[in-house]
Amino acid sequence: MFEVAKEQKQYETFILKDKSAGSEIEVVPERGGIISRWRDRDGEIFYLDTQRFANREQSVRGGNPILFPICGNLINDTYTYQGREYKLKQHGFARDLPWQVTATKTNDCASITIALSSNDKTLAVYPFEFELVFTYQLQGNSLTILQQYTNKSQEVMPFSAGFHPYFAVTDKERLEFDIPSDRYTEKESQETHAFDGNFDFKREEIDVAFTSLHRQSATWRDRSTNRQIVIDCDRFYNTLVFWTVKGKDYICLEPWSAPRNALNTKDRLTYIEPGSTFESVLKLVCSSL
């Protein structure tokens, strides 16, 4: 049995449930359209820093923030388009703006559709008219995100997009990873290293990008909780970023459609013709080992 309910917490919150499976997600449209929580019978799947979430002036650390029209950061937060410089902060603006709910359904799954359109604020930093329409679908322990990116401007629209899921963990030393790449690049040094499936969690911070994927699925397992998470992407997503900070009970395994600074380098940017829509799908599955 599926259910979609609405509650007025600090923010208006939509709660999607699969009662038979004991799973649910919470969606907060006004906080960047974020899925703030995902839980099942065994507890929280997503991590959430509730203090930062309560503060509208701070970016969210937790849940599954939406990245658009860039992933990661630009050099000096700056890019050039048609001879003019623009400023975009890390991960773009979609995660900070209010989204609108356009539909909810409870037939074969619990789902909610949300939309974000360009406005004067976005046009000042990204000179394209657009509409994003995302549908979150919860069925069992599977979370599917259907995405539509529409170019409503008169020129070809370049962009990248992605997600920044924060997964709750208790003991990082008991995690196992199956990431479809044998090398990664460090964010700060830009050095490339071989990857053998292990991370050094004694480091203060790990921030690395896997940009040569040999399949569209990644898995990590938590032997502390006997859980497994599978991230299935379509070919829009060609980069996986792993990020965590020492002493914090989360890891992030982030599917991106292009690497950092892509608006400048043009590396793996997606281009949408005027009046056209690009579609993509991402699926997360949580299961017991």
Rank of each mutant, 00 (worst) to 15 (best):
M1F: 11
V4M: 06
Q8D: 10
Q8T: 08
Q8Y: 05
I15N: 10
L16I: 05
D18S: 03
A21Y: 01
G22K: 07
P29L: 03
P29T: 00
E30S: 15
I35F: 02
S36C: 11
S36H: 07
R39C: 05
D40L: 00
R41I: 10
E44T: 00
I45F: 02
I45V: 15
I45Q: 03
Q58R: 11
R61D: 13
R61H: 12
F68N: 03
P69K: 09
C71R: 01
N73M: 04
L74W: 07
Y79Q: 00
T80H: 06
E85A: 12
L88G: 05
A94G: 02
R95T: 04
L97V: 03
W99Y: 03
W99D: 01
V101S: 02
T102M: 09
A103D: 13
K105Q: 12
N107K: 11
N107A: 11
C109N: 12
C109R: 11
S111N: 03
I112D: 04
T113D: 09
T113A: 14
S117W: 05
N119H: 09
N119Q: 08
P127S: 05
F130Y: 04
F134M: 12
T135G: 05
Y136C: 09
Y136N: 11
Q139N: 10
L143C: 08
L143W: 08
T144Q: 05
I145M: 12
L146H: 05
Q147P: 02
Q148M: 04
N151Q: 01
Q154K: 14
E155L: 10
A161F: 12
G162M: 07
F163S: 05
H164E: 13
V169F: 11
D171E: 15
K172S: 04
E173W: 12
R174V: 06
F177W: 11
F177T: 04
D178C: 12
D178W: 13
D182P: 07
T185R: 15
E186R: 14
K187C: 14
S189P: 06
A194K: 15
A194I: 13
D196M: 02
G197I: 04
F199L: 00
R203I: 00
E204P: 10
E205P: 09
I206V: 10
I206F: 02
D207I: 01
D207E: 05
V208D: 00
S212D: 14
H214I: 10
Q216T: 02
S217P: 01
S217Y: 08
T219M: 05
R223Y: 10
S224F: 04
S224I: 03
I229F: 08
I231L: 15
R235A: 10
F236H: 11
L240Y: 06
F242V: 11
F242N: 06
W243V: 13
T244V: 10
G247N: 12
C252Y: 08
C252I: 11
E254T: 07
S257G: 01
A258V: 01
P259R: 08
R260V: 13
N261R: 08
L263W: 04
N264R: 01
D267Y: 13
S276C: 13
T277R: 04
F278R: 14
E279Y: 05
K283V: 10
L284R: 03
V285L: 13
C286Y: 10
S288K: 15
L289F: 07
L289K: 10
